[in-house]
Design a binder for these strands. Structure first.
Lengths: 192, 192
DNA sequence: GGATTTACAGACGGAGCTGTCTATAGGATC
DNA sequence: GATCCTATAGACAGCTCCGTCTGTAAATCC
């Protein structure tokens, strides 16, 4: 395995890092391949060697988003303590944190899916991501003792999606707080 | 006022109708002006006479979406009876209906905002739309006797946004039902 | 030290995009 | 009937985008 010979990591990493930043800010369709190349300081041939189609780069971007966001969700839940009941509410702190972050621009998956043809690979990857997250929430709800874990999980992920999606407009952290309070109410009602 | 001389309404109406259909299906950025022209059977000069910039057409599209969606929300609320408390939940029937509709593709505002530059007219129009809807819901919540009408309105519109936004992926009507049940729980909790 | 791999640099074609322009035809109005 | 107004039809310029291609430099491997 050769050591990286470029200052800021391997070419592939630089491409991905730049694509992540640009795609999230302007949407994949709003960023040309030439821009990614220019800003990552990479040759065109190099980019097309690692990502033969632009779609491949978009999918790699979504994978990175998935890791980041899902990781933040689990970390927030973990930080809420050992009680699954508290973790179900605590995961919304990830939303609070996301809204506060500079350059926050909503849900990368929804934004990307909105500009991608239905039935394409981007949609499939997005559905996959949402499914994995919901399965995790469902398991938490089951551990918490919910009578209908699937329902509660759907309710909570719906809240998450709502909070994320409306972030396209204004990263108002109050929205995340509202979502958190809603989550508390729904969890309490489901576990009463 | 001259009578329409074209079979399917005035040229302006045909343009708007076609743009509505195409913009909603593929996103404004995914539809070229030439396509709108071809499918609406209109001359290029005519389109640019009515809508000097493509952005003008996009904004007119959003206005039409606003009328349609807000109208559907109010109609659903009205159909739920005279009690504001029931209307707050009943408005979610508009979401149920939207999810069932063929070609459902999520929230036109969020989808469009996601691909538009932040701070631009599209964002402003979207914020305006969301503000008007939320003000209406707030008034309903006040009439229903909520202690914190603004909070309840934010919670409910957050649910609406979540249900709409996730519709980009799958128009699963179950999501709308889940949103409706969440709304019932939140309304009950707020009015207890 | 030669061969191979990897990356840089950038031209290029074909397509699509927005927006302007000219030329023309058909009703409406005076 | 002459004159508008509006609409059609389509060429056109200028730009951007995606993806391919050629050529070159540097680092690694045998």
């Amino acid at each position: 395995m050769p050591a990286p010979r470029t200052p800021a990591g391997s070419a592939r990493d630089r491409i991905l890092h730049t694509a992540f930043r640009l795609f999230y800010a302007h949407g994949p369709r709003g960023v040309g391949v030439d821009t990614v190349i220019a800003e990552s300081g990479v040759a065109k041939a190099t980019l097309y060697k690692h990502f033969p189609r632009k779609d491949d780069l978009v999918l790699a971007y979504l994978d990175r988003v998935d890791q980041t966001w899902f990781g933040a969700l689990r970390a927030a839940a973990r930080d809420a303590g050992d009680e699954p009941r508290d973790q179900l509410v605590g995961m919304f702190d990830a939303l609070v944190g996301a809204c506060r972050r500079d350059g926050y621009h909503g849900c990368a998956f929804i934004n990307t899916a909105a500009e991608s043809p239905a039935g394409g690979p981007v949609h499939a990857r997005t559905v996959e991501h949402k499914t994995v997250v919901r399965a995790w929430v469902t398991e938490l709800a089951r551990q918490a003792g919910a009578a209908e874990p699937e329902l509660l999980a759907r309710q909570l992920t719906l809240l998450l999606d709502g909070g994320l999606a409306s972030g396209v407009l204004d990263g108002d952290p109050v929205i995340a707080e509202v979502a958190r309070r809603s989550a508390r109410t729904l969890v309490d009602a489901a576990l009463r």
